[in-house]
Write a protein that binds this DNA or RNA. Structure first.
Lengths: 128, 128
DNA sequence: TGAATATTTGAATAATTGTTCATATATAGT
DNA sequence: ACTATATATGAACAATTATTCAAATATTCA
């Protein structure tokens, strides 16, 4: 732990780190302690990677209001059902969609309430 | 445009599309009309791609409260300043950070209010 | 001007990824 | 059991990407 006097000094530096001392090793050390854990950063990156593909965005957007089977999606996006199926696996692995089987068909639907919020936020940035 | 009777029939199908007729060409056609524009989907994918990398996530998170120069980030993330600079360019190109020069140093800061909201939403999903 | 430092850039490399193609599995109807 | 249909899967290929390395720019200070 830092002593009282040392902490006071650091506080000063934080307020004006870039202009006074730079590079400022002590502040950087302090920041390291409040870093996001590597595991969380990794998972966050995985999540964003999952929704960072046009095909998967279209799939998720299509499932916004109703469940759809692979061949619906295949027709809607005008892509092979193989390609769709591969992408659905990615979405499944990342827990963004769930599925239910009925006869020969497999119906997919959204499995996450946050995805649509992410889209909404993303759209605000994009449409600016 | 669809006739009244046809529209009524479609409505029925929409409510229960997957169980009654499948694949349902008419509903799919209807959905195609409310698709996101390709351009928007592409831009959205680009945005998510930009924040889908652990290094870039750490950079953005580090800039959450204060501007930092390349060598601060380099030390904080324990990476070469070349690597950091490459990633900062990606962030710049996608309008997520802005910069200001002062002497030999270049100070980067967040250029988007939505990024932190995206992180917050993303974290809610990840930490579940 | 010359040396030191901060940042950027281009080329190279290894790793990851989206789609296609061929094939496998599973279910329904005959 | 056989056929048709829906979906899943593995291998292959091209395209993209993150980092490293070497070199270029730009700025400060002596």
């Amino acid at each position: 732990m830092l002593e009282q006097s040392k902490r006071e000094a650091l506080k000063e530096e934080i307020c004006d780190v870039c202009e006074i001392f730079n590079p400022n090793h002590e502040v950087v050390e302090l920041m390291k302690q409040q870093e996001l854990e590597d595991r969380v950063v990794f998972d966050l990156a995985e999540l964003f990677k999952t929704i960072a593909d046009p095909t998967r965005i279209k799939i998720l957007y299509a499932l916004k209001e109703r469940e759809l089977c692979v061949c619906d999606l295949s027709e809607l996006l005008d892509m092979s059902s193989s390609a769709i199926s591969h992408q659905l696996r990615v979405l499944r692995n990342n827990k963004l969609v769930k599925f239910r089987k009925e006869g020969r068909s497999v119906y997919y639907s959204l499995d996450d309430s946050h995805v649509l919020s992410l889209f909404r936020q993303g759209l605000e940035h994009v449409l600016e």
